[in-house]
């Protein structure tokens, strides 16, 4: 039973992190209909920024709380800046190009960013500093749920609440919803679509950075390639939930996280990634609109 609960929590933890990344995919897809292939790299850059800042601060002897806060803020700031810039460079000029052009551009951007980090930093795995201490009150159940897991779950929950608030009640959130329904109409009623798209990339990238920070401190090591796999998995989650749908992304992520956790726990850990990829292929074949998504028919 303990094993089951352990797997359950590990699945939820994974799922939460996937959710943070998947939201970026889903929001961007909802607004400009693009699979932002470079999103995984944004997350990786978030993790790297956090790693660099945290390590520098800890070498200079800052207290742990300060390190966590500053590294977290830095990760969000830089990731968002990258997200914003990438959209301006690689996607904005292609807004009216054939559908596959921005996707190819995004793939190029993803490869570029991976190698940029590889060249500017290193190809080795880097040990990520432990940012989250073991809480004393967690001790009795520490063998099932770690403190890091708890922090991840709580953080994800808080972030989701904030995001829902932004999308439901703020002006930019309303503009986002309007733009995702009908971009031309949104322009006509005076919404600055370019600003909405930028805001979407900034928010999505910020979420990915939080995900990057959390997973790096969970797994304890990072390298330039972590974005690829995490990106694909988060995309799988977004599609599973129904791409374009925000609750769908969260639901899909949790399902994917749990599936992976139980499958590796009870079946075999060798094929961990195969489960995710197979799930991806199967959903796209059998239910491309996902669990909560709406099927879109082309108008003839």
């Amino acid at each position: 039973m303990d094993y089951f609960i352990e797997l359950l929590f590990s699945g939820l933890t994974r799922g939460s992190i996937y959710a943070l990344i998947a939201l970026g995919y889903t929001m961007v897809y909802g607004i400009i209909g693009l699979i932002n292939f470079a999103h995984g790299e944004i997350y990786m850059i978030g993790a790297f920024t956090a790693f660099i800042v945290a390590t520098v601060l800890s070498i200079y002897g800052f207290p742990l709380v300060a390190i966590v806060i500053i590294a977290g803020v830095a990760a969000v700031v830089w990731s968002s800046s990258y997200g914003y810039t990438i959209e301006k460079i690689a996607y904005k000029p292609l807004r009216y190009a054939p559908r596959l052009s921005p996707l190819i551009s995004a793939i190029g951007m993803s490869i570029f960013l991976q190698n940029y980090i590889l060249l500017a930093q290193t190809s080795d795995f880097l040990p990520f500093p432990r940012l989250i201490p073991d809480f004393p009150f967690m001790e009795p159940i520490a063998h099932i749920v770690g403190s890091t897991d708890l922090v991840i779950l709580v953080t994800t929950f808080v972030v989701m609440v904030v995001l829902t608030f932004i999308i439901k009640f703020t002006l930019i959130g309303k503009a986002m919803r309007a733009t995702s329904q009908d971009r031309a109409m949104a322009t006509l009623v005076g919404i600055n679509v370019n600003r909405v798209i930028s805001a979407t990339f900034i928010i999505g990238s910020g979420l990915a950075a939080i995900g990057g920070l959390l997973i790096a401190s969970h797994i304890g090591q990072i390298n330039f390639y972590i974005g690829f796999l995490a990106g694909i998995k988060a995309f799988t989650a977004a599609v599973l939930g129904g791409i374009g749908s925000i609750p769908g992304a969260v639901l899909g992520s949790l399902i994917l996280g749990l599936t992976e956790s139980f499958a590796t726990g009870y079946v075999s850990s060798d094929y961990e990634d195969v489960f995710a990829f197979s799930l991806l292929v199967l959903i796209l074949i059998f239910k491309p609109s996902g669990l909560l998504g709406k099927a879109k028919n082309e108008k003839v």
Partner: peptide, 12 residues
């Protein structure tokens, strides 16, 4: 690989 990535973006 950096160049390959850049090529994809720039060509598009």
């Amino acid at each position: 690989m950096l160049a390959f990535g850049a090529i994809l973006v720039c060509m598009m």
